[in-house]
């Protein structure tokens, strides 16, 4: 018989709002993502020395993860993230810097973020996680894939908990939904529940 797992906490960041477990924790009218996330970073008193050097996707992922991991003692926590745009927003910035052969000055600081899973590394560094991680590219949010992968990691005892979800950034549009799957928690871990929580701000 398959073990039942639970969703311990969840958070959402989109359209100027940040919520944790369904409760609004930050709201801003800033129209530019950089202003919004900077304001959130300062208001939520997140502390990470590299924050302002990171690309938008990593900033989004780090703030979302911090909401769930700040008071989390478990370090054997796998990370399973997904999105639609991969690192396309940063890829474009890099492409622009190498477009003109007469002015060919690619930025190393931009280039290092031209992979979506770099954000997992930033989260792992900040929270000192040495655990399994994976980043999947889907055309839309797919609860089923995340559900299966998280269950598999827990069943194979690859991790005690799994931080899962969706972190997407492209052309100023941002959407993050992360949740922690554990042996105990508030909600039963199911595809239906994941989809339901994703719809909740």
């Amino acid at each position: 018989m398959a073990t039942t797992h639970y969703i311990e906490h969840y958070c959402r960041i989109t359209e100027g709002r940040i919520s944790k477990n369904g409760t609004l924790v930050f709201e801003s009218g800033e129209t530019e993502f950089s202003d919004f996330i900077k304001s959130a970073y300062k208001t939520l008193r997140i502390d990470y020395s590299k924050f302002f050097k990171m690309d938008s996707l990593s900033k989004l992922a780090l703030v979302a993860a911090d909401l769930l991991l700040l008071d989390e003692p478990e370090k054997n926590m796998a990370l399973v993230f997904s999105n639609r745009a991969s690192s396309l927003d940063t890829d474009r910035k890099h492409q622009q810097s190498i477009q003109d052969s007469e002015s060919y000055y690619p930025s190393p600081a931009v280039f290092v973020y031209t992979l979506p899973n770099i954000c997992l590394g930033e989260i792992s560094i900040k929270h000192r996680l040495f655990s399994e991680n994976g980043f999947f590219i889907f055309n839309r949010f797919k609860a089923g894939n995340l559900f299966d992968y998280a269950n598999s990691l827990l069943a194979m005892q690859k991790a005690e908990k799994v931080l899962c979800g969706w972190v997407d950034f492209d052309c100023e549009k941002y959407d993050a939904f992360l949740y922690v799957v554990a042996k105990n928690g508030t909600f039963t871990h199911s595809k239906e529940r994941i989809n339901q929580l994703y719809q909740t701000l």
Partner: peptide
């Protein structure tokens, strides 16, 4: 200032550019 290896590369690019 606590700069890192990526910052060092940025400084090299800055000197050139």
């Amino acid at each position: 200032l606590g700069l890192d290896s990526i910052d060092a590369l940025e400084l090299i690019v800055m000197l050139d550019k």
